[in-house]
Design a protein around this nucleic acid. Sequence first.
DNA 1: GCCAACGTTGGC
DNA 2: GCCAACGTTGGC
Length: 155
Amino acid sequence: MRYDKGMRYWLMKSEPEVFGIEHLKQRRIEPWDGVRNYQARNFLRAMRVGDRAFFYHSNCPAPGITGMMEIVKSAYPDATQFDPTSPYFDPRSDPQNPRWQRVDVRFVRDLKRLVSLREIKNYPELRDLPLVQRGSRLSVMPLTERQWRFILSVE
DNA sequence: GCCAACGTTGGC
DNA sequence: GCCAACGTTGGC
């Protein structure tokens, strides 16, 4: 892939039964919504068009990094927070000052193979990833370019 | 501001 | 299904 100056790298988790890489592949571009954690939201706000992200499958039989995405629209209000029929509805969010944002992501490609959580935990090069830190449940997190390149070197 | 209770996440 | 770890809520 091409590395542009200032490009940032991210990892985003989703449960494949709810929204997996196959869904994104079919739809090509989708909003990444439903983030309801302030730290994760702040990372969404920091994303810029052109940034790259790994798609991570969580809470499933084979957790790990499965694909690559590109951020194609920076943060804007997540409409699901105002939809009473949505599982992501947040009655406390003020429409004049929306609490939650989403970004739009584009499917780039599958990784050549799943890079499993189990092996991610075993690479010293990745020990600083929030993903593998004790008790971390962060669903959106930044990666360094070194970590990003390392993962692509082992796929 | 403290903190107990509760709900959620997510690996296993 | 279990449960550890964490974040949020709300009484005080």
